[in-house]
């Protein structure tokens, strides 16, 4: 397939469709993935291409969807289970954290669970407190689970293809605010390696470490910092939180001496806390300032667009924080 302009949503669908064509053991299962085409349209028309035996509409039973995917993965299939909203992950947590994540270890390495759990999270649609969260911290806190969070059209495609090659369970969290984002995709170009972060912007003064939609906020903020405030910020897109590519972060922070972690998840006990702690430990002698976390407020998400937008980091907040670091 040649280079094309597409959307994050269609890049995901292309990845699924190509993986299903290439490997008969890949199946898709979840609520509304078939006839409805997915709550956000990612699996639209897959059922007509691959049939209801491989694109399986399920009852509203999140725990059993994940549990069935575990059993299918242990017996030769490569299931892609869809969890409509990451907010429902609590319903599945036993199957995910006690089963999928631990089976290889508990059983002494006899078998892995090569499944992908696709889901989406984040704010942006006034979906309220139970449909807007960023719960990647739950996943990152569980050894045995890989965690991918694509920010770009390219990564939506490549990370999903790569997730479907992994020998271990992958939680793949999309961002609901990115589905209609356009970008250029060339499936023939060699993708970045799985587990490697990407430096999307160079900058000598400050390193912004982020992932998912906040990558775009960070890039916008970095442009404003450069043009209006004379601060040159590097922006690192982690792409996967497990594996975590610290080797890309370390030299940048050692050079800049300042680091900011940006995450939509709530501040306390979260991904940003972990990243900030690591940077502090590993780069302590090089730091001019405390590593700062610009993260979600420690509150539930409101339906009000005004409150919702301000519950998570905005480009303005990122700029404001950087300016205070250099004040």
């Amino acid at each position: 397939m040649a280079m094309q302009e597409t959307t994050y949503r269609d890049a995901l669908k292309l990845a699924l469709s190509e993986a299903m064509t290439a490997d008969d053991s890949v199946i898709v299962m979840g609520e509304e993935v078939g006839r409805y085409g997915g709550a956000y349209g990612v699996t639209k028309n897959l059922i007509s291409e691959f049939g209801p035996e491989r694109v399986i509409d399920t009852p509203i039973s999140e725990a059993a969807i994940v549990g069935a995917a575990v059993g299918a993965a242990m017996t030769g299939l490569r299931p892609v289970a869809e969890l409509m909203y990451v907010d429902f992950i609590g319903m599945t947590m036993d199957q995910l954290a006690n089963q999928a994540a631990k089976i290889r270890y508990m059983f002494g390495g006899q078998i892995g669970v090569p499944m992908v759990l696709r889901t989406q999270g984040g704010t942006g649609r006034s979906a309220g407190a139970q449909h807007s969260q960023s719960l990647e911290g739950y996943v990152m806190h569980t050894p045995g689970l890989r965690l991918a969070m694509p920010a770009t059209v390219e990564d939506a495609y490549h990370l999903l293809r790569q997730a479907l090659q992994q020998p271990d369970p992958v939680v793949f969290i999309e961002h609901k605010g990115l589905y209609t984002m356009k970008g250029v995709l060339d499936p023939d170009v060699e993708p970045a390696e799985w587990g490697r972060a990407k430096v999307l912007r160079e900058g000598k003064d400050l390193v912004i470490v982020t992932y998912s939609r906040q990558v775009h906020h960070a890039l916008a903020a970095a442009e404003e910092m450069a043009s209006k405030h004379g601060i040159e910020a590097a922006v690192v897109d982690l792409r996967t939180l497990n594996p975590l590519d610290f080797d890309t972060i370390r030299p940048l922070v050692e050079q800049a001496g300042r680091a900011m972690v940006v995450s939509e998840g709530v501040m306390t006990g979260g991904v940003a806390a972990e990243l900030a702690a690591r940077i502090t430990e590993e780069c302590f002698d090089f730091l001019e300032d405390p590593v700062v976390r610009v993260a979600g407020e420690d509150i539930p998400i409101s339906v009000s667009p005004l409150l919702e937008q301000n519950s998570v980091p905005t480009p303005d907040l990122i700029v404001e924080t950087a300016r205070k670091m250099f004040a």
Partner: peptide, 8 residues
């Protein structure tokens, strides 16, 4: 639930 997946 694993047996549902094994059944699939």
């Amino acid at each position: 639930p694993a047996v549902v997946g094994a059944g699939l």
